[in-house]
Design a protein around this nucleic acid. Structure first.
Lengths: 236, 236
DNA sequence: TTTCCTATTTGCTCCAGGACAAAGAACGGC
DNA sequence: GCCGTTCTTTGTCCTGGAGCAAATAGGAAA
């Protein structure tokens, strides 16, 4: 059992972007140095403001990364999926986590503490290079979302968010494509910088038009192409 | 003359975050491999969509980094100042520049092409580590601005933007603190995700209250503490 | 100085979407 | 099955700030 789990984690690491190009031996070494952490839905890997002791790589499940303002407004920075890093501040010298990481589904991650992280990056420069690359990609992504938030209307932003979620976590079902983790109106609102009320209205309207079909914390996209049109603000 | 310029550039590199910890010899090497680029106000170092051949480090002047949407809405990602990098996509494998870099004042930068960049990072791992760190800091900064855009009202965001600009480019004058490069209402609007009209109204109201004093593309903060209060949304 | 161009101000209108309230609906636990 | 909790929907109200138009003001160039 234990061994089986280790094995499935190995599979994930093998294809994780961060570890691309490492040989088996190096990979084994990385795994050996990792701490395994498992969380059930709602549990947190770490909270905003905690000492940033480790960085994580998600092996299984789904993790919501959120930030909260002093006034209590929460925003969702991203949803991390299998093979993605989260809590990577230690890689670049941050002292505290700037966000909270919450398991959305039952999740397991591997974690490396700060000295180990530094050692790995020294020993395997490819890891450092991949980290740089991934960070850069993330920066580009956030910049894009910033731009969208600054220039687009709510409906379009919600459509974009859904399109992205479909790419990351879409699962074909007979009615269409299901976002395969529980996602509330509130979550979607915090992901797009609006309120749950507005999200609810938008989804209702889309439901009427047959674009989606939704339930409690559950969304199925029936006509993905129409959703893309909405996201790109095309007419049809 | 030529030598004098090289010398002043050397001074900048010596304290630039990216090159922290390099010895003189390494620094000389970096300079030797760099291309020197000079632009006058309004000229561009590169445009969004161009092949990302080099990355830049600003030695003198001020550079505005902007993104534009297909619909023509422009947003300002940041203003880079002396010693800061811009156009750093090549460092992490991007193919095209995702933004445009325009000189706001007469600016000189050093630039390294892609193969040289890679070589430098290999040869001097400290540079790679600094790059990772700087990218991380920038990510944190953008995340923060995203959060502010999502949760705060315009007036507060404009105040925050000005506070940041004061930190980056504030110069004491007898009337208060001057933002020492030309900055229009439009620029400030694109920096905060609003319109020039709204910015103008806000500045007018602040001027009435004696917080600032402004002219054409020119802002002096007379009571920085009050501006901070506005940025933090405190009462007084 | 005059002229032209660009930046700024200000008035007015209007609506997207935030805020609140209250009534369902779905689920998990017992 | 019943209950309490958590989500969701929908109605109503209302305002922040966008959009447009037009007047004004600063600078640069000639």
């Amino acid at each position: 059992m234990r061994v089986l789990e280790r094995n499935s984690e190995r599979q994930v690491l093998r294809v994780a972007p961060l570890f691309q190009g490492l040989n088996e031996e190096a990979l084994e070494n990385c795994i050996a140095l990792a701490l395994r952490v498992e969380k059930t839905p709602g549990e947190m890997f770490f909270q905003q403001g905690d000492q940033a002791r480790r960085f994580f790589l998600l092996c299984r499940g789904r993790v919501k990364v959120t930030q909260i303002t002093p006034e209590g407004h929460q925003v969702v920075a991203r949803y991390a999926g299998q093979g993605q890093m989260f809590g990577c501040v230690p890689m670049y010298g941050g002292k505290e986590y700037p966000a909270t990481a919450t398991a959305v589904t039952r999740s397991t991650a591997l974690a490396w503490d700060r000295p180990t992280t530094d050692r790995l990056m020294e020993q395997y420069p490819r890891v450092a290079i991949s980290a740089l690359q991934l960070l850069g990609d993330e920066l580009a992504e956030v910049r894009l979302r910033y731009q969208e938030l600054a220039t687009e209307r709510v409906e379009q932003r919600v459509a974009r968010a859904l399109v992205r979620l479909v790419r990351q976590a879409g699962k074909k079902v007979d009615a269409g494509v299901l976002i395969e983790f529980p996602l509330s109106r509130q979550d979607l609102a915090e992901l797009t910088g609006t309120t749950l009320y507005t999200v609810s209205r938008i989804l209702s309207s889309w439901e009427e038009q047959g674009v989606i079909q939704s339930g409690r914390r559950r969304i199925v996209i029936r006509t993905p192409h129409r959703l893309v049109s909405l996201a790109e603000d095309l007419l049809p």
